[in-house]
Design a binder for these strands. Structure first.
Lengths: 147, 147
DNA sequence: ATACTTATTGTAACAATTATAATCAAAGAA
DNA sequence: TTCTTTGATTATAATTGTTACAATAAGTAT
């Protein structure tokens, strides 16, 4: 699964004339196989043993390249730094208010909402995103133990 | 309408023991009557004629106070700074990819999605947010003219 | 090989936000 | 009232995520 995604992603890059460097390959691979919506710094730290001389700027540069190619989405929440999510099929995010963990879940597209919104506002809709906030099972358990 | 909201908000603050200073009153009033989801800097600039000596820190401090009291929500998008939205009844945001304008629209709560997500992930849900992206009527018109 | 383009690196700059310390204002107790 | 305490504001320094820039390195094509 991961391999298929990676191969597709590399094809997409190649077809748009973007050179595939070892750094780019590694960053992309990390985002795809990591299920954790990493920050730029997460990626930087995860790869520094493999690429000791890689600059943070390279991570940011390439995240921008990937974003422009439509391969990753940038997620900004209240906390300091952006998280990056590999674009596969439609899914939404469940975010724990206590520990910040992000869990994906799938739901059939909210076409009806998009249509209504478009009708009400006159916008041409391109996409939407949704986040649900709450407390994850682990934090719930912890909270009840603490009491 | 605005006045009612402001009075309610001040009551909420009073009931939680938060002192209502002239700055707080002005910031709250501005957020409520402004329909534009202002940034901290927008608020600071808008009030500097009224409070020439007010510090940016005061704006940030009080936005945090209001957020903790549940009066405002912080919205973070890709762009640099957070926007602040007075909490009234459930609504979502339509955002223009071209000019960044944010337009509210109302939609009956997405209870079904919340329930499914809760069931799938085991989270206790507290709330959700959704943004729809697209191109606003003004930018559409402009784009066609430019061609 | 040579020239040309593109990517990476290292570092400086920037901008939003937060932390800190000092001053100021309000509220309560004596 | 005056004193004391608490909380708010101010001004500024520090922090942090991100971007800009110039120099170097690596590919690509002629």
């Amino acid at each position: 699964m991961t391999e298929v995604h990676l191969r597709d992603a590399l094809d997409t890059l190649k077809s748009t004339g973007v050179r595939i460097t070892p750094q780019r390959h590694a960053i992309l691979e990390f985002i795809i196989q990591s299920m954790s919506h990493p920050t730029a710094d997460d990626i930087y730290k995860a790869l520094e043993s493999k690429f000791p001389s890689m600059s943070v700027a390279t991570v940011y540069n390439n995240l921008r390249v990937f974003r422009e190619a439509g391969l990753v989405k940038e997620l900004t929440y209240g906390d300091s730094s952006s998280r990056f999510d590999f674009v596969t099929n439609d899914h939404y995010h469940m975010i724990c208010d206590a520990c910040g963990k992000i869990v994906d879940f799938h739901y059939p597209g909210l076409d009806e909402v998009e249509h209504l919104a478009s009708h009400l506002t006159g916008f041409d809709v391109s996409y939407h995103r949704m986040e649900i906030y709450g407390v994850c099972p682990t934090c719930k358990e912890h909270a009840t133990k603490v009491q």
